[in-house]
Design a protein around this nucleic acid. Structure first.
Lengths: 203, 203
DNA sequence: CAATAAAACGAACGGTCGTGCTATAAATCG
DNA sequence: CGATTTATAGCACGACCGTTCGTTTTATTG
């Protein structure tokens, strides 16, 4: 038996790869089993058998997308030492992942969050939990920079993370809609202003 | 003849009213003529005749949504005097419009922009032009505060507007997905930090 | 009021949707 | 290898999609 287990597992991976790409183009909600099957090169029913329900396919696509994000952004950035170095690395990778238009469709998580924020159900629940976790991780990363003495002692790390998220979203929004890479410079300046004039707790 | 012109015009308005609400719930792309007709209480073909094509309906819904936005946010905020007063009023109204979850679905413009940012066509073109215009207007509003001496002379108004947009997006994202009104406080603190430590041109 | 124009309807079209069911082909295992 | 589990294909279903068309109802106007 090879390391990649069953045949089923292999084609499932291929389906999810193509599924991520397709969902980026048309949106997670508009992801269609027939179209996906055609792109993968198999029958609709054959593909369907892997998931049993459309919603299960959507969740599987999201989980796969997150795994790729974690590997390319979080894990890589955590190789940098705690502090501003890691924060900068994380921001750079996050920005490249979310807003770069080398890949069509931008960040699937952000698009899906906007698409499903008013449709109760497992997809929405998954996205909400994921975003909460990410925001908490961001705060922690900022906190390390405080501990390292690179940011003021009374920095409001949650406020910092919230604003950092806003910079990513604004860049994502403008780069993707207006197709203008010039906005990356604004994203960079925004980070520097956050660092040089960090939000402080009012206590 | 009454001031509201034809019967056709009247029902068209009713269609767009309901269309905005429905598009907010399911997304502009998933807006369906049959479902909309049912909600309005008329036949599919009768509704269809008003627009001639689905894309035309989508554009009409967007135009109607923007008219409401302009009236409730821009026009109202412009009653305040130029300067920080107007900027604060604009931010407050924008935030209430976009992120309040009194109305289901949040801001249709932002949701549609995220949904269509990778689907070339008239809808995308409309949204892109609209967003460019809005960002330019934001910069101008910040510029008035500079002229009034309430912000540093060398304030980078475009950077300011870009970051302001990010605060709105971050609030929208978190409030709508996580259903936690607590994020409005972060939005407010973000504006104050922008004002107290405004981004400066590096020239 | 009658004549005319505008608006709404009902039925039907070819497609595609998600999802079952049954049969066949391929991979796995003793 | 043969036996058996697993993966895929084929086909059909009811529902809904956007759109067209001819008809009927409703507004508007002289």
């Amino acid at each position: 038996m090879s390391r990649t287990a069953n045949k089923g597992h292999t084609t499932r991976e291929a389906i999810l790869d193509t599924g991520i790409a397709l969902a980026r183009e048309v949106g997670l909600g508009a992801l269609t089993i027939g179209e996906l099957a055609e792109r993968v090169g198999m029958s609709k029913s054959g593909l369907f058998a892997h998931f049993g329900a459309k919603e299960e396919l959507q969740l599987a696509v999201l989980r796969a997308a997150q795994a790729r994000f974690d590997e390319n952004v979080s894990r890589q950035a955590f190789l940098a030492p705690r502090g501003l170095a890691r924060l900068r690395e994380l921001y750079k990778r996050w920005l490249g992942w979310a807003a770069s238009n080398r890949q069509p469709g931008g960040c699937l998580m952000l698009a899906a969050a906007s698409e499903f924020d008013d449709r109760p159900g497992p997809v929405r629940d998954y996205l909400a939990r994921q975003q909460e976790g990410w925001l908490a991780g961001l705060s922690r990363t900022v906190g390390f920079a405080v501990e390292a003495g690179e940011l003021p002692e009374n920095t409001d790390t949650e406020q910092f993370a919230f604003e950092l998220f806003g910079l990513i979203l604004s860049t994502h929004h403008h780069v993707r809609l207006l197709q203008d890479e010039r906005y990356f410079a604004l994203a960079q300046a925004g980070l520097e202003r956050l660092i040089n004039a960090a939000p402080l707790r009012k206590d």
